[in-house]
Design a protein around this nucleic acid. Sequence first.
DNA 1: TCGTGTGAAGACGTTCACAGCT
DNA 2: AGCTGTGAACGTCTTCACACGA
Lengths: 208, 208
Amino acid sequence: MEKVEIPRKTIYRLSIYQRCLTKLHENGAETVSSSALAAAAGVKPAQLRKDLTYFGQFGTRGLGYSVEELRNAIRDVLGRTHLQPVVLIGAGNLGTALLRYQGFQKEGFEVVAAFDAVPEGVVKRGISVPLHDIDDLTRFVQENEVRLAILCVPADGAQEVANEIVGAGVTGILNFSPTVLQVPESVTVNNVDLALELENLSYFVGRD
Amino acid sequence: MEKVEIPRKTIYRLSIYQRCLTKLHENGAETVSSSALAAAAGVKPAQLRKDLTYFGQFGTRGLGYSVEELRNAIRDVLGRTHLQPVVLIGAGNLGTALLRYQGFQKEGFEVVAAFDAVPEGVVKRGISVPLHDIDDLTRFVQENEVRLAILCVPADGAQEVANEIVGAGVTGILNFSPTVLQVPESVTVNNVDLALELENLSYFVGRD
DNA sequence: TCGTGTGAAGACGTTCACAGCT
DNA sequence: AGCTGTGAACGTCTTCACACGA
């Protein structure tokens, strides 16, 4: 197979395009041009078209794209026909907030279980996800063949937990801990580092 | 002034280097080589050295970098000698969690006020930041010359709030709403889109 | 000899500009 | 005429490889 690899940044944008297409679909739009969709997504038209060429041709010259067709095509590429089970580890402030957060469910992800070192101490108000002791983590991940994990533990314990879940079969980690995780190449880590983002902003704001 | 612009990605990495240096400093290390620091930060040695050349020379050939000197130099570049005041808008699940989150304070940011459309409905447990009605937002931002804002409102209200705070003088927005904000060029927006990150992960995990 | 500093090469991503289909 | 699809140009970031100083 000589499939050209789709750039990571393109994958991110595909998700954004899909959201815009869903909104257009709800508004009853049948077709959309690359310039209109690009404007909604905050990119240039040429970029949008280039992104799409990575996995096929979908438009009609002189007309644009069928909203529904393009949406289906992107969904297929992103591979979310089926729901992905996710575990969340570390039910502190951030962790519990994410458990209450509706955005994941809305996008087709189900947080099937949460783990904490001291599950008794967690405020469970508004949380319907079962909360386990962290000792059950490996067993649970293996038995349920979980591939995705959200990591919300403090920085000093993050690497240890990461090793454990990777050993148990997790291959994608959404890491909220302010640490650089060392993982095998086969594992994908997406870092969400809140302090880092603020610090970065403050750099660009700070020049006067 | 003919200062070469420091790439945005380098700025991000500087923050990471700084964290690693702080950890090294706490462990009593005096000097560090580019390869050691790079390994800790998860980058290649050449990249680290290149990043540093954007704003000066700090190492000693054959020896490495002075942990303390380099840390101070990076702090100066990032410009965080003084604390930046930040406002948070939208005290829902995510917003309140961020208010309780200690990571910002630890990195030198102070959330000076939070705003919500219905401040009475917010659970205030564990929150010490004053909570205002969103009607006071513009006045507060102007009077306190706030430059940074954390946006945690639902997607459909985000653009409106963004317009308001930009008008009031905010030039850096940390946006947690799953929307593409349209702002003037002079304003920096850093998006933290949780569902997007998960979707992205699931793409890389999904191939088997 | 060891590790930094850096020009040059390379890889990658974006933008342009236009050919070609409807 | 209008808008897509795309090779080529461009710009940016990363990596290499080695000169140079300690």
